[in-house]
Design a protein around this nucleic acid. Structure first.
Lengths: 202, 202
DNA sequence: CTGAGCCGAGACGGTTCGTCTCGAACGCCA
DNA sequence: TGGCGTTCGAGACGAACCGTCTCGGCTCAG
């Protein structure tokens, strides 16, 4: 029996050229017109592609954007499989959070990331994919680094690394998403210092 | 000269009955069908109102929902102009954050709050109104309570209350929005404990 | 060489948009 | 009290986009 209700398309005959053109067009358009006005029709026109080619491979515009953003992230983070570990946890975390701040402030990431976050908030299915595909791989790096710090005695042993992690990233995303105040390196540093003083041993 | 380009409608002749019906219908529908499928047409039909009556008074469905949610919040928080202050900062914060957790988990608030957050992320104008109208009043209460704790010497004097505040609420909203893990009282307690240990004097 | 399947292109009916036009109901002001 | 301007409910209207479909053209497997 076939897994899909409608016979699934043959992925081996898929046009890589069209796939890339669609992902690129989606990223361009979401930056130009915003997520609300982003339409499948416009993506198809910009990519020089039939609409059916999009509907054949993706269930929604959010799914297209998710793939596009994932490809973007994989290019940027090619090879970076670990967070820095100089032994100085505070300095390492500041470095990484500053990088995150720069990414969130970069126009190239901003529009697509916002679109996916917004869609995830009101759409549990997209949310699950977004978390699994984009968020989890990033957070896992943090969690590993925190676990190592815990083994080294720099963080109290009774603390759940996931909770510690959210204490660091939560305030950043909160300020970024709701634009309450500008997102700066100084803020990233302050979050690390204040949070660590609660997590640090002794 | 009139302030608006198109002559503004006369607010004194506005139908209060229609206004309430529209706000109620918007809240109902966003709970039933979700924000994506919420349409002005459906709101008008449910409220027994002409579409023009909505377009005359609101610029978008997000604006309608914002008013509806604000009215909902004002009912719920009628009179609550201050956070509890028993002198025990940790206990007070746990109590309040637990209440916030309950609200976020309550179906009555969830759908509308998510819709407004999602819209705010991709729409700076709605975001500004959302922050000013909904978020700021809540956060101001926290900020006041933290400032008093600071005066009482329970929080280090060099800490910006806004930053301290985001350390508390950021992790909660993060987990709520992205559904990474369930949002519980235990989590609220953990956030307060871990955060305070960084903020507490000595 | 032949056929199945993806491709670009775009027609199609359905839905919602935001505007506009009715006659009816309402409330301010004479 | 009567008149008049404005909002009201209702719905028609063209435009935009939806998701499905049909059509030739092209590519690859057998």
């Amino acid at each position: 029996m076939t897994p899909s209700p409608k016979t699934a398309p043959d992925a081996s005959r898929r046009s890589e050229r069209s796939r890339r053109a669609i992902l690129d067009a989606a990223l361009e358009l979401v930056g130009e017109t915003g997520y609300q006005r982003l339409t499948i029709e416009a993506i198809a026109a910009r990519a020089g592609v039939g609409k059916q080619t999009i509907y054949r491979w993706w269930p929604s515009k959010a799914a297209v954007l998710l793939d596009a953003f994932a490809a973007l992230g994989e290019e940027a983070a090619a090879g970076e499989t670990e967070l820095p570990d100089t032994g100085d946890l505070e300095a390492d975390l500041k470095l990484v959070l500053r990088t995150t701040v720069d990414e969130l402030n970069s126009p190239r990431f901003d529009a697509a990331y916002r679109a996916l976050a917004a869609e995830s908030i009101v759409n549990p299915e997209v949310c699950a994919h977004f978390v699994e595909r984009i968020l989890e791989p990033q957070l896992r790096l943090y969690a590993q680094r925190l676990a190592r710090a815990q083994q080294a005695g720099h963080i109290r042993p009774d603390i759940d690394p996931r909770t510690a992690l959210e204490l660091l990233t939560g305030p950043l995303t909160h300020r970024w998403l709701l634009r309450t105040l500008p997102l700066t390196h100084e803020y990233a540093d302050a979050v690390v210092e204040l949070t660590l003083r609660g997590l640090a041993h002794g």
